[in-house]
Computed example of a mutant assay.
Amino acid sequence: MHRHRCHGDTRHFSGPEGSGGRGGGGRGGPFGRHRGGPFGGRGKRMFDAGALRLVVLGLIAEQPRHGYDIIKALEARFQGAYSPSPGAIYPMLQMLEEADLVSSQMQGAKKLFAITEEGRAYLEENRVDLDRINAQIDEASEEIQGVSLGAEFRALRKTLFRQVRSGGFSAEQAQQALEILKKARGDIEALQD
């Protein structure tokens, strides 16, 4: 069994998404399974952690990228409706680097990540999973094409924070805003029925 070497010791990653190890039933190498892709993960998260790592590695394989570039590339693929947090991306990039799947070099104050030969081999081993996940992303983004859900959500959040920070709400207005948000959430949840 082949395992990634990092700083002289053998690292074997495992986590909630599955056990490590290459090949065989694990299908996820050092990062576990890529169960369900971006939409079939557990709970309310958009991405299964293993699927997100695979997509991020695929983006770096296309061209070297900074962490911010990866966040923006994913946001663009989802028509602005999804944007991973820096708290999800930057630790993942460090993990990919520790597993020798990517390397980095400083560019000013930022790290530029590039895929390694081992990273390319890992992508090829998991090509079927990556293609399936990318197809799911493409299908979802086609369905929402032309609808700027993400942009509208960010505008709403900005408006709400601006009003709260400036003291623009009276207690009564704050209660009205809360009721509006609750109703909107309920209406959006009802769309799934």
Rank of each mutant, 00 (worst) to 15 (best):
H2T: 14
R3S: 15
R3G: 15
R5Y: 12
C6Q: 11
H7R: 14
G8A: 04
T10H: 11
H12P: 02
F13E: 02
E17L: 11
G21P: 08
G23M: 01
G26M: 15
R27A: 07
P30W: 11
F31Q: 06
R33D: 00
R35E: 11
G36L: 01
P38N: 08
F39P: 05
G40F: 02
R42I: 03
G43N: 06
K44R: 14
K44C: 13
F47I: 02
F47H: 07
D48I: 07
D48F: 06
A51E: 07
L52V: 02
R53E: 00
L54Y: 07
L54A: 01
L57I: 01
G58S: 05
L59I: 05
Q63V: 04
Q63A: 03
Y68Q: 09
D69T: 03
I70F: 06
I71C: 06
R77G: 10
R77L: 07
A81Y: 05
Y82P: 00
S83K: 00
P84T: 07
A88V: 00
M92F: 04
L93I: 02
Q94L: 15
M95V: 10
E97T: 13
E97Y: 10
L101T: 05
M106N: 11
G108Y: 04
G119W: 03
E124P: 01
L130Q: 01
D131M: 00
I133F: 10
I133P: 03
N134Q: 15
A135H: 09
D138I: 11
E139L: 07
S141V: 04
Q145I: 09
V147E: 12
V147S: 15
L149T: 08
A151E: 10
E152R: 12
A155H: 13
R157P: 10
K158E: 15
R162K: 14
Q163M: 12
Q163Y: 11
S166F: 03
F169P: 01
S170T: 14
Q176K: 03
E179S: 14
I180M: 03
L181G: 07
L181D: 08
A184H: 14
R185G: 07
G186F: 13
I188E: 00
E189S: 09
A190V: 09
D193N: 15
D193E: 15
